[in-house]
Design a protein around this nucleic acid. Structure first.
Lengths: 221, 221, 221, 221
DNA sequence: GATGAATGAGGATTCATTCAT
DNA sequence: AATGAATGAATCCTCATTCAT
């Protein structure tokens, strides 16, 4: 076996040739890290996907670690920014949970590799993610919980279970992207198609609604 | 990085020396595959964890693939058996969703590596899982959906959204095990402790209850 | 690839089960050494061909070297004996070259692996064959040359070219067995079939005849 | 035996350092494959002979198979070209068999490893040689037989035995190179010395002459 | 007489990285 | 900015051999 039973990743769409190499490397690397994780992804495949030779990568990134860090940062940063924004909004303008689901899902739909990358990290204990998160995720999380806690309807869950609500939401959002490759193999259906994403987003909105809605309200369609 | 920032995995607890080697190999391999995935796990580390040399593994398994298949089979089989049992129960005796959550979580708590292994597989498109699942998971899934569909209270979701309920449940169960290593690093708390598992299980029960319960009922504590 | 793109060698014809294991080992080993040479043949395949496990071989032979030596000895000895006999015959009864061709080819036809084994050895410089030959082949060769030299009709070649005649005969005899596997692949014809062997033997007889015959005699059919 | 009873092959004559590495690899590999066959030759020894480390080989050849194929192609191609030329010459200019012997032997003397390589292949059934030969050797062989058939003096052998003449010639040419290592060990004489080759070539010419000459002509000296 | 288990040595190949060009 | 060549370390796996059972 010469190499790569992995997806063959076509060698650089010519129309992108003009684009800045660094960006193209990040794109390919993101996809490969999402597929195989940090340890499982090979720089040779990254280079191959970009249409250059492996050593050329070192003209743009100091090491595999640095490349991975750049991928993570580029991907995670806007998501954290969004969360930050949502969470810091003054109470009056704060979007309801359905709107939150929509905005988060819309953003991740732009970078569907990102959640898979994060899941890889989580499984391994997040060795690369930690430095990135420690400065940001702490405050975000705290405020997120405050926000949830301030949501009307949450009181029936009990304050000490608010973190569970956040975790559950995280699982339902991120997990959807994570099973997509498997689901396609198993059921022949692409969960990341716009239509499928929209339906899942609506479903999430309904679930959140149900969690927080006044008891008795039927889940709207 | 010279080698193994991975957990050094102590080299074979002497008290287990008597146990059948094959079983010890499976245990260590399960943990490593769960941590690093198939490609990322090194047979050298498996052997090291068992206390033997790498080539000795080949006296018990024909290849890395075969070892991985054995790990998957040993782990997945009882879970599928449980699901099968739950799903095939006559309607009258069928456990409610809260009981289902309890039994599934109790089983996975025994093999907490398994869900992480499955998540790795899912991210990669399930190349090794597919042959194992195709013969089993199809019928189980169909019946699971039938079961959910027969659950009183589901009708407000609409038949076409039943698969989403199943997926969401899957995410909340499996995701909990998948973030555990990350969560420990980030929040210093072990989600797989008995107490934490129990609370998450209760939470899941409440969520399921809410999904299916007659509107208006408050989530029980 | 689990193992052996080599010929799969069926795992021990049951009718031979009663036979003495040692002999069965020698048979299988002979074939494999003939196919792959000493370094290329694997004891695992020998054992597999016999229907036992590799370590059991060591109950019969002290090492791979010893097994190989036994194969060589068993195979080479009768051939050398034949040559010895032919060469030592009193001049009056000495068979003509045609008869020599027939007897040698008949004997090798019984052990068609042997010439291929010898060719392997020759290519490698004969490290295993040397000790076996030094005690025997010297005298045989000397007498063979004496015999050829005494053959009527040889004088036209000149005494100093007698070794060449012997070498050429060797090449034509041994080479025929050596190309057989290749020839079958290339031309779809088995040079070791009785009929093919007979025709080659007759051909050799004619060549020898021509070498030594009084000039002008046509090669008989 | 810890390792390499093989000739230690001195680690790269410094005067060749400048030469193109790829060519040096081919040279060393050719010699080792000729000695030990494909399976028996170790890339470590190839690299060692060239004066580089094993992985560096992969900068020049994709695999052991690819290296072997390159060796075969480089070696076999000029020989086939020569045969092609000889065979396609118009009848009037066609060289006599003595001249053919001279040209073929002269060419092989330049690459004395090649025939040994081919013999290894033949013993194993020619798995690597087949694709290379199928496109070339077929036509060559057909024409060779036509050429032989058109040789005056062949009629006494009978048309159906023409292939045997070709085979016998092949054995005598190739076999000479194949036993050379063995012969040196056994008789202390190098059959590949220019003088020895010249005498063998003359001998072959005489044999061919005898085969085809008008009956009665004495073999010329 | 056979074998399961273990192992040191080695064998092909991959990988991240360096460096001169 | 790109690359050909080189390489130490590691990866999966094979092999001949040993030994207790």
């Amino acid at each position: 076996m010469p190499r790569s039973p992995r997806a063959p990743r076509p060698p650089a769409p010519p129309e992108r040739r003009g684009e800045h190499t660094r960006e193209r490397i990040l794109d390919v690397a993101e996809a490969l890290f999402a597929d195989h994780g940090f340890e499982g992804a090979a720089l040779r495949d990254v280079a191959g996907g970009v249409g250059i030779r492996t050593p050329s990568l070192y003209n743009h990134f100091a090491s595999k670690e640095a490349l991975y860090a750049a991928v993570l940062e580029r991907g995670v940063e806007p998501v954290l920014a969004l969360l930050s924004e949502l969470v810091q909004a003054p109470v009056a303008e704060r979007p309801d949970s359905r709107a939150v689901a929509q905005r988060v899902m819309a953003m991740l739909a732009q970078r569907p590799n990102l959640p898979r990358l994060v899941v890889h990290e989580a499984l391994a204990g997040g060795p690369h993610l930690r430095p990135l998160l420690q400065k940001v995720v702490g405050p975000v999380l705290v405020r997120a919980q405050q926000a949830v806690q301030a949501t009307p309807g949450v009181e029936r869950w009990g304050a000490e279970r608010v973190p569970f609500l956040v975790l559950a939401a995280y699982h339902m959002v991120v997990g959807h992207f994570a099973i997509a490759p498997f689901y396609r193999e198993l059921a022949g259906q692409d969960l990341l198609e716009p239509e499928a994403l929209a339906r899942w987003t609506r479903f999430l909105g309904d679930v959140f609604d149900l969690w927080f809605s006044a008891p008795g309200a039927p889940p709207p369609k």
